[in-house]
């Protein structure tokens, strides 16, 4: 087997391993859905698994693991925007719990 062919086959082996890993993580999300826990706990667990899944897909399927500069560029901008979007949660909780300080 040539060097190029070896590299190609090992790359494919890694892709298949990542694919199986993603399937397992997706399966874990479905298992969590059937656990007898609160919606909040379910949400937290599913979100953690989804973030891990997304990270694995970004690093290996989208090859961010091979480019450190681009990796940080993507992470910083995406995380900054996503965190910025969390600004309104206090108002969402106000809808369910009321605002004691408004009286």
């Amino acid at each position: 087997m040539t060097t190029a062919a070896t590299h190609k086959s090992s790359g494919m082996g890694r892709d298949v391993a990542v694919y199986v890993g993603l399937l397992v993580l997706a399966g874990i999300q479905f298992v969590i859905a059937y656990q007898n826990i609160s919606v909040q706990q379910m949400f937290e667990r599913m979100l953690i698994v989804a973030i891990v899944e997304a990270g694995v897909a970004l690093l290996f399927f989208m090859h961010l693991s091979e480019n450190r500069g681009l990796r940080w560029f993507v992470i910083i901008f995406t995380v900054a925007v996503t965190l910025g979007l969390q600004y309104g949660w206090t108002d969402s909780f106000r809808l369910t719990n009321g605002v004691p300080w408004a009286k």
């Binding site: 859905a33 698994v49 997304a54």
Partner: peptide
């Protein structure tokens, strides 16, 4: 392919939040 993987990546968040959290028990 990058775009296609992104579509896949988004689905990883849509499934738990929109489907699985609304599963009848």
């Amino acid at each position: 392919g990058l775009y296609w993987h992104f579509v896949d990546l988004v689905w990883m968040f849509v499934v738990p939040l929109v489907y699985l959290l609304n599963l009848a028990h």
